[in-house]
Simulated assay, not measured.
Amino acid sequence: MKLILTADVPNLGAPGDIVEVKDGYGRNYLLPRSLAVVATRGAEKQVASIRRSQQARQIRDLGHAKEVAGQLGDLSVTVRAKAAGDSGRLFGSVTAADVVEAVRAAGGPPLDRRSVEVSGQIKSVGTHAVTVRLHPEVTAELDIAVVAS
């Protein structure tokens, strides 16, 4: 099955890539989750617009990814949670979008929320480690402090 990816799929490709996958993987995983569309002539024309939007938020190359990783290593990021109980447990959880907003507020580089990998759920105040996937060869570890506001 020939598909055009609309989102980054690990070990498969980036948005705008035209890939050939097995029928079941395409029908049961990629298409229902809107990670890809069927490659038709009309859809192939959309590839250019998908790639333009991807390049606007993408790290340019390996050197730029290492530079951004260095900037992230120097940051002190604090995420303000909306509310927490007496034991420090949050009412809700900290998401990747919250982390991206906190990095931007701390003066860090602009990140895409899809590149931030929160291991498990952050549901308590304290310091937590978050992985940022900047490039296929470069990942950065970011320590965030979660405080109740």
Rank of each mutant, 00 (worst) to 15 (best):
D17T: 06
L72D: 02
V21D: 02
S34R: 13
T139D: 12
G108H: 03
A140W: 08
E141R: 05
E117L: 15
V138P: 05
R41A: 14
G92R: 07
P32I: 04
E20M: 04
A148R: 11
L142I: 04
D17I: 11
G42W: 09
V146A: 00
D61T: 02
P109D: 00
V103D: 02
T78D: 09
L134R: 01
V9C: 00
A14S: 12
D112V: 11
V37M: 01
Y29W: 06
R104Y: 15
E67W: 04
V138G: 09
P32H: 02
E44G: 09
L134Q: 05
Y29V: 08
V116W: 02
L3A: 08
A39R: 08
H64Y: 08
G42H: 10
I50C: 08
S49F: 15
T131Y: 14
E117M: 15
S124K: 11
G126M: 08
V147K: 12
S124I: 06
L75H: 06
A102G: 03
A7E: 10
G120C: 10
K45T: 12
T78M: 13
R80Q: 02
R27N: 05
P10I: 00
G107S: 01
P32V: 00
D98L: 00
Y29D: 03
D86W: 11
A83S: 11
V21R: 05
H64S: 11
A39N: 07
L30W: 00
A7F: 10
V47D: 05
A7I: 04
N11M: 13
R60W: 05
V118I: 09
I50A: 06
A36R: 07
P109T: 08
P136R: 00
S93T: 06
E67P: 14
D143I: 15
I122Y: 04
Q55R: 15
P136H: 03
A65Y: 00
T131R: 15
Q58P: 05
P15A: 00
A81W: 01
G24M: 06
Q54P: 15
H64D: 15
A7K: 10
G73C: 05
S149A: 15
A105N: 12
V118S: 01
A14Q: 13
G13S: 06
E20C: 03
A105E: 11
Q121T: 15
S49R: 13
G70H: 04
V79I: 00
G24C: 07
N11G: 10
G88M: 02
S53A: 14
Q121N: 12
N11P: 12
V9K: 06
K123V: 10
K123R: 14
A84Q: 07
Q46W: 09
V116Y: 01
E44D: 09
V147I: 13
L75R: 01
K82C: 13
G88D: 07
A39H: 03
